[in-house]
């Protein structure tokens, strides 16, 4: 019954936006945090792969846990930053000049999840490239909007 009322309300009520970002909205967006997070994920994958696989010491195990934890945290952060740019910064009018915009973001977000699930140098490198591509597009739109 509760879920029925909930779904009816979701359908019938019009949705408005309520800002809880910087609340202005401040309009301050930057792909740099996503780039740093992606670079950290790549570094962690490299460090994990460099760890001794045979007869690991207690210190090696400690490092392993820390590297995995940092990789997880930064992959999450990267996804969060990407989603902020996607949903808050980019607007439908950007699709006119970048028709594959959604695909780029969708793939980058998926790569964040893949990097949480795996320790893969290939996927970590792909993530860095994907975020760099987003940063390049972001800069391009900034330059265009200034003209």
């Amino acid at each position: 019954m509760k879920s029925l009322i909930r779904s009816i309300l979701i359908k019938i009520l019009p949705t408005k936006n309520a800002y809880a970002h910087c609340d202005i909205p401040c309009g301050i967006y930057d792909p740099k945090p996503a780039q740093l997070a992606a670079a950290t994920v790549l570094k962690m994958v490299q460090l994990i792969q460099e760890l001794s696989k045979e007869n690991p010491t207690v210190n090696d195990r400690n490092k392993f846990v820390r590297y995995v934890s940092t990789k997880e945290e930064h992959a999450r952060k990267c996804k969060e930053e990407i989603l902020i740019l996607w949903t808050d910064y980019f607007k439908p009018e950007h699709l006119k000049t970048i028709p594959h915009l959604h695909e780029i973001f969708w793939n980058a977000a998926k790569l964040c999840s893949l990097n949480k699930q795996e320790v893969s140098l290939a996927h970590a490198t792909e993530l860095v490239k994907a975020v760099d591509e987003i940063a390049a597009i972001f800069q391009k739109t900034k330059v265009t909007s200034k003209k």
Partner: peptide, 26 residues
């Protein structure tokens, strides 16, 4: 006239209670 509004949260300032994308009834 229904005295309710449906708001979609945009941003992170109400985390962890409300996250970006949550929909609330007012």
């Amino acid at each position: 006239m229904i005295p309710l509004f449906k708001f979609k949260i945009k941003g992170h300032s109400m985390e962890p209670t409300l996250k970006n994308g949550d929909i609330v009834l007012v």
